[in-house]
Write a protein that binds this DNA or RNA. Sequence first.
DNA 1: GTTACTGGTTCCATTATTTGAAACTCAGTT
DNA 2: AACTGAGTTTCAAATAATGGAACCAGTAAC
Lengths: 267, 267
Amino acid sequence: MGRVTGDGTVGKALEVLDQVAAFGRPVKFSELLAGSAFPKPTLYRFVQTLTNQQMLSYDPERQTYAPGVRLVRLAHAAWEQSTLAPLARPHIDALSRAVGETVHLAQLDHAQVLYIDKRNAGNPVQMYSQAGKVGPAYCTGVGKVMLAFSDASLVDTIIEQQSFHVFTPHTLSTPDALRDELQKIKANGYGFDREEHEPGIICVAVPILTESGRVLGALSVTSTTSRTNLAGLEGYVPILQDTAEKIARDARNWSFPDYDTKETTRT
Amino acid sequence: MGRVTGDGTVGKALEVLDQVAAFGRPVKFSELLAGSAFPKPTLYRFVQTLTNQQMLSYDPERQTYAPGVRLVRLAHAAWEQSTLAPLARPHIDALSRAVGETVHLAQLDHAQVLYIDKRNAGNPVQMYSQAGKVGPAYCTGVGKVMLAFSDASLVDTIIEQQSFHVFTPHTLSTPDALRDELQKIKANGYGFDREEHEPGIICVAVPILTESGRVLGALSVTSTTSRTNLAGLEGYVPILQDTAEKIARDARNWSFPDYDTKETTRT
DNA sequence: GTTACTGGTTCCATTATTTGAAACTCAGTT
DNA sequence: AACTGAGTTTCAAATAATGGAACCAGTAAC
């Protein structure tokens, strides 16, 4: 039996939802159909159902679908209950005030970095990330740091899923280069992003670890090459580590769901 | 046949998801079962599926479920594509800078107010709202303003769904009181929240309207009674209206999904 | 004005999935 | 050892999903 999705009708519907979201813009039914494994009427019904359920919103004028508002509501609950964000909030605020640069809080989701919170520095440079946004793990400060402190087996599966797309001249473009880097990061306890993802953008990142060493997330301070350099950023390491430490402690007290990163390896 | 949900398996699964989210905290299976219309094994399988799909996260330690991270990812797409937020962003930034108070952007979802963006004033007073959070329509500035400019028929159905819970001594607690207020708001073109939801918190709000008069959302400036008063807030009306106007214009140019607020009346 | 598309929608017999009463497991009690 | 209750599995019956084919606009081409 051709296993395509996983679990049942619901799984398939959610797959469709993901597809719509992946487009990053309102899509027409036909576009969706082209990229979909489902036959026309099936896809059609899914889209209908999802729209009814406000998981998709439909623009009758342009005949396009986009992820719907119900998701925003639901996500708020998710963000508050299943992420480090609410717990880390006061600490990040303090950190942000102290360093006066953009601060990021991220977790690992699937094989990607999921940004969960962010404090914009006084002068907001237009930048990639944002709460809820996902980014590549192999070429971001937070991503590499989280990998560096993850189980070898997990790292293997994640590395396999990386695209190693070359964003800038500095992007680490091979698994080996990345593994080397992870080694060093683990030794140092912190890592940099040396314009590996966006030109001109650099950052320092530290992991947030449970007592037992499990990776909960990561924290980073980001700036631009026009404002500072790696050596400058390195100065933030102590306060970053301090903040990460505090968050980890709170997480333990609040008994944070030790966030099981079990990977259901999907074909 | 007891029609409970609406559309198919997917609808039922999403209903479960909503239930989990509604708890506002991690829930045990048994708690869920108690509040659910589904028989044990059915509910069990739904929860399993949703967990597999990362729509729920499971904490094996405490045996509790909470909305999952996948929602955060999806919601980001929703927020960017199906809400006014991205479009309104620059204008809200400007407004926020100009007034130096907390600014809210909201839309109407179901019969509730959905906050989709927010700018915190310099000194952040701890306050209810937050992006993704929902609030009552009958006792918030943005809520009343949106109602005031909505179709009578829509207002009727929405009013029916309000709880009219009395939050403060100033809360409008009857449909009639609310209708009166809406009348006045429509005449003025803007409305206040006179500590109707939270003591000490007051705000001015204006609607964001399409050319044809359809309500896209609302905008508000919030402050505290210790810092200013209604008369003081009233001074912000011109800049608020100006901002709303600009957002509406952009929305038209970007051809914003004229956001069909069709209400599938549910039993 | 007719004909051929193209994109979206509905039919309906076949098929696969969901359903839930009952039965079972595995703690933790009594 | 027997009991209890939360969580889990079974399995035949009931139901819902499936998708090939047909249908219906519009609209571009002849």
